[in-house]
Amino acid sequence: MIEPHSRSDTVSDLDFEEIVRGNTAWMVAVAQRILKDRSLSEDAVQVAFSKIYRSLDGFEGRSNLRTWMHRFVVNEALMLLRKQKRVNERPIDPLLPEFDRNGCRVDDPFTLPITSEDHLHSRQVRDIMKEKIEELPDPYRIVLVLRDIEEMSTIEVAEALGLSEANVKVRLHRARAALKKLLEPMMRGGAL
């Protein structure tokens, strides 16, 4: 992969093609996690690359090229998501843990079956995870995707979404708690 390091680096069409070929797959995957739609994701990546091409001379190498390009595709995907009319805004409260008036947890506790780390990486578990993550209400799903899967920092997520850091943390915790609730039948049954 070509990685320009300073403003003086010039990027020829040939170099750019190499950048596109080496980075399109993961960029589509990032956009798809945000948009839940392959066709829209490809649109987001296309626009992101056109902005990347125009900005490459300004890439100063303070972060690696992949990290720098990641911001472009996330921003384009978020932009497209905001334009979507079909936003999942189901209430999150039914998916959150319940407490009695003494502040004690009322959920029925269960012991997790022992599974290996490899099991979590299996195709079957990842398919379940993708399906359940997509069921989360969008305002929470996006925070979980950016923070836990894309590994952006709290500050970066706050900036990308125009939220306070405190709000990102609240949404992240609720998203994880809600996802846990959605996964409970699988966990109780030993599938996860």
Binding site: R105, P109, L112, E117, L120, R176, A177, L179, L183, M187
Partner: peptide
């Protein structure tokens, strides 16, 4: 209850992170 809850919460987080693969 909270021990079991936290264990399941951590498993959820690890499984979510694994989707990066």
């Amino acid at each position: 209850s909270c021990r079991l809850y936290l264990a399941a919460y951590k498993r959820t987080l690890a499984a979510a992170k694994a989707t990066r693969k």
